[in-house]
Simulated assay, not measured.
Amino acid sequence: MQDCPSAHTSRCETSTDTRQLGKKFAAGLSAGDVVILDGPLGAGKTTFTQGIAEGLQVRGKVTSPTFVIARQHRSTVGGPELIHVDAYRLIGDGDSGGTDPVGALDSLDLDTDLMDAVVVAEWGGGLVEQITDSYWLVTFDRTTAVVADPDSHARIISWQRKHTG
């Protein structure tokens, strides 16, 4: 990712703000990038992914992958595809317990090589980063703004580049 800093924090007041931040984030993603989204239910992970999809200009409606485990979205402009994964369901209970994440992704029988796509994994912490040497960790905080103002619906979204090994 070249256009975004290696660490960044934004406050998003609305879902539109979250989607726009995802689109901005996508501007620097390229094939082979892995993005792990970490945060509680309802924090904006899928909304952020909708922005990534818009930025990557891929086909198909982006919805939570919870019930299908993974969705593949093809590019409309010859760019990388988007693979949106629910890593918790992919691996099982979220405890890798010896499960091979690469094997689990391969078992999905995707029509593309992971190195030709951007992989966005909800609930992927501790699992999906095993498939790559570096990844983006995007965290969603939906409590800090509410503690300061109980009427707030804001999310604090932060990302940083991480390296394994």
Rank of each mutant, 00 (worst) to 15 (best):
Y135F: 15
Q160S: 12
G32P: 10
T143F: 11
T112H: 11
T112W: 05
G103K: 12
Q20M: 12
G42S: 09
E122F: 03
G92A: 07
T14H: 02
S134I: 02
A27Y: 01
S15T: 08
F25I: 11
R142G: 03
G94H: 00
P101L: 11
T18M: 10
T76F: 09
I157P: 03
S15M: 12
M1K: 12
M1F: 05
W123E: 07
V118E: 04
Q50S: 01
Q130F: 05
G22V: 02
S96T: 12
G103H: 08
P5Q: 15
L90G: 05
S75N: 08
I91F: 06
S96H: 14
D93K: 14
V138L: 08
L37A: 13
G98L: 13
P150V: 04
P40E: 07
I156L: 15
T63L: 10
V119F: 02
G39P: 01
G55D: 04
M115R: 15
G79Q: 05
H8D: 09
L90E: 08
D3V: 13
Q72N: 05
M1I: 08
S158P: 01
F48W: 08
L114E: 02
S6G: 03
R89W: 06
E54V: 00
Q2H: 09
E54G: 07
V128S: 11
I156Q: 02
D3W: 14
T76G: 02
L37Q: 00
G124S: 07
A154K: 04
G92L: 05
L105V: 06
L90R: 06
V118F: 09
E129W: 10
S134P: 05
T99P: 01
S15K: 14
V58D: 01
E81W: 14
F48Q: 02
S15Q: 13
M115A: 12
R161S: 05
G32I: 11
S15G: 04
V58G: 00
L56D: 00
R155N: 04
Q50K: 15
A7K: 15
F48R: 02
D86G: 08
G79W: 02
H8V: 04
V120Q: 08
T47E: 03
P40T: 05
V102D: 03
E122Y: 00
A87D: 00
K23G: 11
L127F: 06
I157F: 02
L114T: 07
S134F: 10
T164W: 08
L114W: 07
D106K: 15
G39M: 00
G103W: 10
T16Q: 15
T46L: 09
Q160R: 15
V85D: 00
S158C: 00
G32M: 12
T99N: 12
G55M: 10
L127S: 14
V77W: 06
L37V: 01
P150W: 11
S96K: 13
P40R: 05
E129C: 07
D100C: 07
A117S: 15
